[in-house]
Design a protein around this nucleic acid. Structure first.
Lengths: 254, 254
DNA sequence: CGGAACTTTGACACATATCAAAGTGTGTGG
DNA sequence: CCACACACTTTGATATGTGTCAAAGTTCCG
């Protein structure tokens, strides 16, 4: 895959795997989501030495992986922004999620042999490639890692399923509020501002994710701005009145 | 849990676990979905002897498990019909799927410690209780079982996610066609008629699953009947023109 | 037989999609 | 550096699908 051909920067300054891993993870914003390096004891970290990591750049518009690709690695997003796509049988496709720096990509494929969707960079990005075979071998020896990993994976599945479930019963306004608050929370979690951020996706991509047309997305954003809940200027979003934005989600009692 | 208190019939005629398991599985319609008993070699079956199975009845309207219940067992549906429910934070709930004889229930909880949803019997049913701890121990020793199990689980997740994904972009008519064809396919898979069957769920439950109101479900069924695609009489469904019903799903080209 | 639960159908309201056109921003090549 | 093309966004007018409310019909079961 072209996107993964770039020489890793980390390899230059860190000749052996563990040093590299430490370099990667110490100043890395993957935090608790970085499965192999966090929550391990000294000894376990030694064992982790066997895992070979490397970084890789993905240019805007390039795919990190595609539907049907053999599943070999997980990807930690070090910087940048991705969308996940599902291809429907009839050739159309739908955005199934967004991933930002600090989050893991590729878990959709665990259990199957192949990736079940595409991951496309929405801006020039950098990922940490985590070979799954090595990770699994490691997990055999370190039960805490096994647990951590299973928990992360299932949380991911529950979160995404819950999201999709809810979307089915929500109005367009509720969907937008949910997306904005979700992005806000995640930006905050990884150390960015929770009240101002730039959307990396287009209205069309938001709509695809939320099950709305791009015009509807645009209209609702304008409406939320008109009501003083947010400020919108193209891709820039500022949350002006979080409580009321949360109320949009809260006021559904049937 | 009340629902699981019934004395197992199988235990009476089969004193030891393996004999019981064979009894259960040989005339059981779980087929390839019955994780522990299928695809095992002679030796592996011996190992499987350790797994204690039992059967249990669940009366119409009773819960097999509830949200938050400690996850201890998987359930193979031997006979009957279940709906799965998700409880949304605001107290409302939504049908997330239906399970018929031959299918597995409880996989939603794997990875977490607790069940993430309810399973309610829509008619008097019988399940095969599969203790997960034993299953997992067994899987440690039998790699093929491990694989089989992971594959079954991930297929389940992919199928359900795909379903929910698609629903988001479909019209009411497409949703109904999808549900009818899905049920038809599954009835056929387990040896029942694929062209005539009785729905076990109400219009309201179909609607909850499909993201539609019960009146809409009723109207669409009437419309499909008017067009000669199906015959509807209350809960009875006969598929009259499968090709055209499939076309309802196929004619979505954007 | 009577009541409860479920289903069907109609009239109407409303949210979102569709179609169309103008506006804004961005990158590229001259 | 400008100009042009292209991609994306906004807004309006209108169409359409589904929800809502209401009432009558059906089936089931005590």
């Amino acid at each position: 895959m072209k996107a993964l051909s770039a020489v890793t920067v980390a390899a230059d300054r860190a000749p052996d795997a563990i040093a590299q891993c430490q370099t990667v993870c110490s100043d890395c914003n993957l935090r608790e989501l970085c499965v192999p390096c966090c929550g391990l004891t000294r000894h376990e970290k030694d064992v982790a030495e066997r895992l070979a990591f490397h970084r890789s750049r993905v240019r805007r518009g390039a795919s990190l992986y595609r539907t049907g690709d053999r599943f070999a690695s997980l990807f930690g997003v070090r910087s940048g922004f991705f969308k996940k796509l599902a291809l429907l049988e009839d050739g159309r496709h739908q955005v199934t999620g967004f991933k930002m720096a600090g989050e893991l990509l590729g878990m959709d494929a665990i259990g199957t042999e192949r990736h079940t969707g595409n991951a496309v960079a929405l801006e020039n990005s950098e990922v940490c490639v985590i070979p799954f075979a090595g990770l699994q071998a490691l997990a055999q020896e370190i039960p805490s890692l096994q647990r951590h990993f299973r928990r992360t994976m299932s949380r991911e599945i529950v979160r995404e399923q819950g999201m999709m479930l809810q979307l089915g019963t929500m109005s367009a306004e509720e969907r937008l509020a949910l997306l904005l608050l979700d992005l806000s929370r995640r930006f905050a979690m990884y150390g960015y501002s929770s009240t101002e951020f730039n959307l990396r996706m287009t209205r069309d991509e938001m709509g695809s994710y939320l099950g709305l047309k791009l015009e509807t997305v645009s209209r609702i954003l304008s409406r939320l701005q008109g009501e003083g809940l947010i400020r919108v200027k193209q891709k820039f979003i500022r949350i002006l009145d979080r409580p009321r934005l949360e109320q949009v989600l809260g006021r559904r009692q049937d």
